[in-house]
């Protein structure tokens, strides 16, 4: 049966794991992914094919192989790095390959007339990106970036593979100690929902704010 006392007891324990690991990994991982994804998207458009093509292979490889495999490989290859840092880096890079695709479609959606007008004004390439293309492209990309951030958030339990004590691991430990898993897992699920939902709402608000 559902033990509400156990539920309340699990709450602070899991909240601590949530804030210290899940939230930290998600926020830093999202920032890393958002920045790297943009770098990939621009590089794929600007670099000559000799560099661009191999880069595309690497990104495709990362995107098409499972996250837990990456976590384990990097975890065992770089034992000197703390598992939590490995988690942030691997999750960030993994999701940067998805975000790069979102940025790419955002950039592709900008009409050629915008590039042509920038050329006609002799704007330097870097200025064209910064002042004309990216402000429009990122606005188009934002909803999709928000979705990837939420997906990343829900992928943090994979950190269990490299023994980072994120929230679901904490819930398992708590459940094992008290011979009842349902309360702690319910708390974990609720915390996920409580964080995901406002994030989604926030993204919608941001989108509206960026509209012109």
């Amino acid at each position: 049966m559902f033990d509400s006392e156990l539920f309340l007891e699990a709450l602070p324990v899991l909240l601590k794991a949530f804030v210290e690991v899940t939230l930290v990994v998600t926020v830093l991982g999202s920032l890393l992914a958002a920045v790297l994804g943009l770098v990939w998207a621009i590089a794929l458009r600007e670099l000559p094919a000799a560099i661009g093509r191999p880069l595309r292979w690497v990104l495709d490889f990362i995107r098409m192989t499972p996250l837990p495999v990456h976590l384990l490989v990097v975890y065992y290859a770089f034992t000197q790095i703390s598992p939590k840092t490995v988690g942030i880096l691997v999750i960030g890079i993994h999701y940067s390959t998805y975000m790069a695709e979102s940025y790419r479609s955002g950039i592709d959606s900008i009409r050629s007339g915008q590039w042509e007008a920038a050329t006609a004004l002799s704007l330097p390439r870097s200025r064209t990106w910064r002042a004309v293309i990216l402000p429009q492209a990122i606005r188009n990309t934002l909803p999709s970036l928000g979705n990837w951030a939420i997906a990343m958030f829900k992928d943090t339990p994979f950190l269990i593979f490299i023994s980072v004590p994120e929230m679901v691991t904490a819930a398992r430990v708590f459940g094992g100690r008290n011979f009842s898993y349902i309360e702690a897992m319910t708390v974990a699920g609720l915390l996920f929902l409580l964080a995901s939902y406002p994030t989604a709402v926030l993204m919608q608000k941001l989108e509206k704010k960026l509209a012109y």
């Binding site: 009409r111 007339g113 915008q114 007008a117 050329t119 006609a120 004004l121 002799s122 002042a131 429009q136």
Partner: peptide, 18 residues
């Protein structure tokens, strides 16, 4: 040399974000 040349397009091509 291109700086000496300006162009007005059929579709205006103003920057909508500015």
């Amino acid at each position: 040399v291109r700086k000496r040349i300006g162009m007005v397009f059929q579709q205006f091509n103003l920057f909508p974000n500015m």
